[in-house]
Design a protein around this nucleic acid. Sequence first.
RNA 1: GGCGGCAUAGCCAAGUGGUAAGGCAGAGGACUGCAAAUCCUUUAUCCCCAGUUCGAAUCUGGGUGCCGCCUCCA
Length: 470
Amino acid sequence: MSMVLYNDLTRSKEPFVPVHEGHVGFYSCGPTVYDYFHIGNARPFILFDTLRRYFEYSGYTVTFVQNFTDIDDKMINRANQEGISVSELADRFIAEYYKDADALGVRRPTHAPKATEHMDEIIGLVSTLIEKGHAYEVDGDVFFDVGSFPAYGVLAKQSLEELQSAARTEINERKKHPLDFALWKSKKEGEPSWPSPWGEGRPGWHIECSAMSMKYLGSTLDIHSGGTDLTFPHHENEIAQAEAATGKTFAKYWIHNGYLLIDKEKMSKSLGNFLTARAAREKFPPRAIRFFMLSAHYRSPINFSEESLVQAESAVERLDNCWSGLQHAKKNPGSEEGAGAGLADLLDGLEGRFREAMDDDFNTAAALGIVFEGVKGINTFLKENDGGDAKTLERAEAFLRTVDSILGVIGIDEEEARGDEEEIEILLKEREAARRERNFSRSDEIRDSLAARGILLEDTPQGTKWKRKN
RNA sequence: GGCGGCAUAGCCAAGUGGUAAGGCAGAGGACUGCAAAUCCUUUAUCCCCAGUUCGAAUCUGGGUGCCGCCUCCA
């Protein structure tokens, strides 16, 4: 079974065939580190992290590269506002990025290059483009010459004329064509700058991704991803820069995630209608945020609302309850081996269907539906077999672990010892004794006092189990 | 103007030719001292119209509504 991915380059689903067998070179456009990222920004981070995890589960070695844009107009403006240097600003928000991304279960990239640390590669690429006649210098600025690259518009699926007719770009007398874009910008007063053959200056935004992606992944990447708003002009320009320089296909598969909307409008910093990931995870468990992101297809727009997150939180609790039920059953095994053959078969089948769903253009919504079928199967098994046998419990646990290693939505191994476990067990025993004596006021008192500490009890036929409320 | 996306139950959302996965919420029941969890049952003329077909949520044509890109943007 092989994967099929929707490729924006061809606007169709294609079988995934990597450049090098068994390996995936994956580049995802990362954040401009001038501020906290919002949950709209979080969507690609979570989505493409999950896709990466799935490639790894499927047996690929993945080199996952996500850059930090640490020099551009927004960086300079914000640094000036804050009265700090651009690099101080970058350091600060790269650290903040990792706080949020780590909390959301986003694995760290194989490489997380910063533009400011790749000036040699950027300048080298710009030089090559000038040499090959695809770029020209005007008074210290360097522009890409879109007229020299006939394929310009492949991603946007529009001709130069069509793109130009609606262009809102200001007329710049120095550019040959209105759509020519800056590869290198000459220094302005008070801006950070680097030496170059064209004088002091800094790179344009688009060139950094081309330069850094090819440095770490070679001249042809397998996958290049980002939000759908990057399709044009950012990704179009990346293709132009890279292919004009190398003559090779830049990326085989272009995948773009749909927007996260709020009140049916795109969430963005410029519209001001955003909720930072930081604020979101203070309000909702990070796994609920992940679940929300994965509950719809990655190319569909999703509408953020408090209600959606509350629903996701409840769904995640159902997953957690299944896991904790399993853990409780392991400590209190029930019936003999053999009773679980049906469940094992069910889970085998579900794992196959899970893979099929994920292989089909990364259909996480369908995959989650299949996971819940497994949850129901496991819950029913536990109920009908008074806990069940060790072997079947292992099988069920393996199912949830597999799912979680890819989707990251189940509360596995999150429980840390806090030193009060023994005390809780003693209280549970006391409560058990009180219940036997039908001293319910005492037993409820214990339950209430534990609840006040965030510890919830459930009386099951296999004894009382407890869990911490997040 | 050009390019593109979406419309499935109260809410979220899979499903691209054979009469609708899953989650949340609701109702009834089982279990329980109670609660919680769990299980069972239950909730859809698939935006509208026309067409193709033995058969369409699914294909075609025409509407309507919503959203996005073409400017920094995930």
